[in-house]
Design a protein around this nucleic acid. Structure first.
Lengths: 139, 139
DNA sequence: ACAGTCACTCTCCTTTTGGTGCGTATAAAT
DNA sequence: ATTTATACGCACCAAAAGGAGAGTGACTGT
C-alpha cells in the first residue's frame, strides 16, 4: 500500500495532531515495540521478573512450550537490548545465569498493566468472540 | 523442549509462587497477550485511539507500511475480539468506519505505559546494542 | 568404561506470515 | 462510454519463523 501524502488531522477531542511528530524517533520506537511485543520476550520477562536469577534450562521449563532454539534466540536478543545480563561460570557442566537488568525490570513494570488488563478483561474478549462467531457463522 | 516436573519455587523476595496459578486462565491470558502483542494490532490501536473514527484507507495511510491484506486481517481480528466496531454504510463507493470500543480503549490505555517506556528508554536500548556489538563483534 | 549433565549450535524441514496484483460492484463525474 | 473511487476477497508466491533432533565438550558419578 502506498502512503501518499499525509494531510494534517485533528483528534476527536479537537486537539491538533502534528502527524509528523518526529518520524525518526517514531520509527525507532516502533521497532522497539515490535521486538518487545514478541510473545517469548514477554513470557521470559515475566518468568525472570518473578523468579529472579535463573539458569537456561529452568527458564525453558518455567516458560513452557518454548524450544531450545527460541529460548537461546530470545535470550540473546534480550541480552543485546540490555534487558538481561548473562553470566557464564566456567565450570563443567556449563552454568549460565540470567537476570533482569534495571532496564529489563522497568520494561516488565511497563508491561504489568497489560497483563493486568488481560487478566481482568479476558472474559469480555471471549464474549466478543462468541458474539462475532454467531453474527458471522450463522448468517 | 519437554517440561518435566515442576518443582515448587520461591520468588527472590521470599514470597511463595504457586507455579500452578491456574493453567487454564494462564493459557488464555497468554493467548490474548500473544495476539495483542502483534505489531499491527498495536499500531492500529494507536492510530484509532488518537484519531477517533476512521475509514479503511485512512487507517492504512496513518499506520504506514501496512498492506491492504494485513490491514483487513488485523481489523477483522480486532473486531472479532471486540476492540473495534465496524460500521458499514451501504453507499457507493463503499464506506466503512472503524472506531475503538470501550474494550479497545482500555487496552490502548494499558499499552500506553509501554509506549511511554519505549519513548523514555530507547536511548538505553541503543546504547546496550552498541555495547553488545562491540563486545561481540570485535573479539 | 560409560552414561549423564548443561548450554548451547547446526542442520533439516514444515508451517506461518505477509506482500503483490487482480477482480468486483456501482454510481457519480468527465 | 469510460474513468474513478472504495473496501475489500482471492490466488499465488517468497521469505521468515520456528520445531525436532542430532552433535559437542569436558568433567563427574557409578
Amino acid at each position: 500500500m502506498d502512503q501518499g501524502v499525509r494531510t494534517p488531522m485533528r483528534s476527536p477531542s479537537g486537539r491538533e495532531i502534528p502527524d509528523e511528530i518526529d518520524p525518526v524517533l517514531e520509527e525507532l520506537v516502533r521497532g522497539i515495540i515490535g521486538q518487545v511485543a514478541d510473545k517469548w520476550t514477554m513470557l521470559i520477562l515475566e518468568v525472570l521478573e518473578e523468579h529472579g536469577t535463573l539458569r537456561f534450562t529452568r527458564i525453558g521449563k518455567l516458560t513452557g512450550g518454548i524450544s531450545q532454539k527460541m529460548l537461546t534466540q530470545t535470550l540473546r536478543q534480550m541480552e543485546r537490548d540490555g534487558f538481561v545480563s548473562r553470566t557464564v561460570y566456567p565450570v563443567i557442566p556449563p552454568k549460565v545465569e540470567y537476570t533482569l537488568t534495571e532496564l529489563g525490570r522497568s520494561l516488565s513494570a511497563a508491561f504489568c498493566s497489560v497483563w493486568e488488563w488481560a487478566a481482568v478483561r479476558h472474559a469480555d474478549i471471549e464474549a466478543a468472540r462468541k458474539a462475532f462467531e454467531e453474527r458471522n457463522g450463522g448468517a
